[in-house]
Design a protein around this nucleic acid. Structure first.
Lengths: 366, 366
DNA sequence: GTCGTTGCTGGTAGCGCTGTCAACGATCCT
DNA sequence: AGGATCGTTGACAGCGCTACCAGCAACGAC
């Protein structure tokens, strides 16, 4: 029977409808599909809602419609700079849309991911963004059975669950090594930390490139499972030198490690790039600013997040992208740290070293 | 009437109750307040839920109970390293609890903050974490009228809305300058970017310390509203030198700027610390690893986030903290970049410079 | 023995919204 | 002109859960 107004004084859809002189269901439609209303009613409902300061109750909407307007995001780490760029893209793309982001951290554990996935799916999310392509079989099955669009981000691989956006870490690593070969470097070490699947694929790319050139040796590779840091870069480089003093280059699995290697070189008074060339991965902002400027592999992290969320939202709203798998590629940004002759355009005022050359490569899927 | 089972085959509370041989309401209580049940029923419901793989429908719960289990978090930026540490703490503390985090980005706009706040509050969050103490009057009023616990983070000030956790940026900056004075530095420049309220208070602290010593000059201060970066640190330092070539130290509003200054010094072949001392702010990981190691003001960002979320959850559950305002303090971590005689314990292997000395100060509220 | 009191359990009645279907007039086609 | 179609609107019946209150047994106090 007629409850006139909820005790909390909250404005409900019914109040808006009453003021606008329409039925509640018409008011409801105004918020979900305004085009379906005649212009007259549309404006009436609109002004009534504004006048009352109506804000929809999302819980009621979710319960009645059997779906939420939540996009679930599963990422392995919040610490990592790389993910914060991706996240920023995701949040930017979701802003202004009706969807809200629900973030969960898998801590690089695919079992944790499976658990979170189960939790997420039980709440019928509007869409899902998951990191990488290495889910458990169980997770994979859940994803395939899910009745919402899904985007896998960070890398690309052969069997997308639904949509996929990323690049080939394997190819990117090969390109970095190829760049070092082109500069005449032969004894190239690899430094990697927290060997998640993507770092592992970078290592694989490095190994394959080195093997192709007949230059691979196991002792050129130093890795650890511990989380990455600048300090760790210096420590791993020290280990590497202990095993193999005769290096002429180091390829680092990320930029923090590369910066750590640079500092360690400085401590040891190694000339960079004359004695040791350094190449990082991700092209964080500081790479262009270091002395010498540091070569890195640029990846489009922000764009990846933003595009993933946009594609997802489009798909949720029924407009599936024509291209469900997007390779964002990468670029080897060649800077002083790996070019034998230090770059001429040495920056004077801004403190930023301009990239010398760019080599753009689409990553070829395998 | 008797709907036996939802078409989607989803397990509802009613199914669990039926299997356990209890009423739905008893099953409901099991999930909210297990102690209220007799041990026999408790175990029956528990095993029934597990057997059926029951997952509660949060939308229905929220609708029926008129409250959600969402903690709203309003932060000004996702880019900033500082906030990613805070967020990590928040997520860590919320993990394992029933509460989920809803994050929104105010982009350093208090009007945007007000808008988001209105949106959040309409959904009746269980609790709220907001950044800083500079809300609009309207926001402030909404916060005070909100019927959920609230924590303000990042700084402390005189009139907490509810709870508050942070430290005094003003005092921290004063301590940094005092450290430089103690090292015999007199002509200390200030470099700051994206002058948000907290950076502004650091500047205020710097100015007051300099004035106290009779050393303040306006041209020692270079700031900009643009977002911070390593490259920008070099550029601002360059500007500062143009205005005032006779510097013996630079206090940077954050560590990225400090690293940029260090690189710029290297480019100009300035000796650090002999010619120029550098002090940063936040003590990001790389500061200990740079060459020379960089002095900074350590702030407990992760702990701040974690404690904020813990306090909030405790308060939501009715256990208000005895101490609603928590000053986490700061430490000036003295390293090579600002100590006239470079430290003896020059690191050999790990690439990390050990902090020489620590000066711990609780920040006194004003 | 009566009367609270406490501990546990269940019934009823929604929470605020939307899916579905039906109804209505207007428009279009043959 | 008659029927089909479209665009627009509203009535009804829940979505799955919990707040509220009532009931019932067991117990102790007097």
């Amino acid at each position: 029977m007629g409850r006139k107004r909820t005790k909390s004084g909250k404005i409900r859809l019914a109040e808006v409808a009453e003021l606008a002189g329409v039925s509640p269901i018409t008011a409801s439609r105004f918020f979900r599909n305004p085009e379906a209303l005649s212009v007259a009613k549309r404006t009436r409902v609109e002004s009534a809602a504004k006048e009352l300061g109506y804000v929809p109750n999302l819980a009621a909407r979710a319960l009645a419609s059997q779906r939420t307007e939540v996009i679930g995001v599963l990422i392995p780490s919040l610490t990592n700079n790389v993910f914060s760029d991706v996240l920023r893209g995701i949040y930017d793309a979701s802003e202004g849309s009706r969807y809200s982001i629900q973030l969960s951290n898998t801590r690089y554990s695919i079992l944790q991911e499976e658990k979170l996935l189960r939790l997420f799916l039980a709440q019928k999310p509007a869409g899902l963004i998951v990191t990488g392509i290495d889910q458990t079989a169980e997770s994979r099955a859940m994803l395939e059975a899910a009745d919402c669009p899904i985007v896998q981000i960070m890398e690309i691989g052969p069997n997308p669950v639904d949509m996929m956006i990323g690049f080939s870490h394997y190819d990117a690593a090969r390109a970095a090594v190829a760049h070092l070969f082109a500069q005449g470097r032969r004894r190239i070490g690899f430094v990697g930390a927290r060997m998640d699947p993507r770092v592992q694929r970078r290592l694989d790319g490095y190994v394959s490139a080195m093997k192709d050139a007949g230059l691979f040796e196991q002792r050129l590779v130093v890795t650890t499972g511990t989380p990455t840091s600048v300090t760790l870069g210096g420590a791993l480089f020290t280990d590497l030198l202990a095993r193999e003093p005769d290096l002429d280059a180091v390829f680092c699995a990320n930029d923090d490690l590369a910066l750590g290697v640079l500092f360690e070189c400085r401590r040891r008074e190694f000339e960079v790039p004359e004695q040791i060339a350094i190449v990082g991965f991700n092209d964080l902002e500081f790479m262009a600013s270091a002395v010498p400027t540091l070569t890195s592999v640029r990846t489009n992290r922000y764009e990846m997040g933003k595009t993933a969320a946009s594609m997802l939202i489009e798909a949720i709203e029924g407009r599936r992208p024509e291209q469900p798998v997007l390779d964002l590629g990468f670029k080897v940004i060649e800077r002083q740290s790996s070019t034998s002759r230090p770059s001429d355009n040495r920056p004077a005022l801004t403190g930023g070293g301009a990239p010398n050359k760019m080599v753009a490569l689409p990553s070829s899927h395998d």
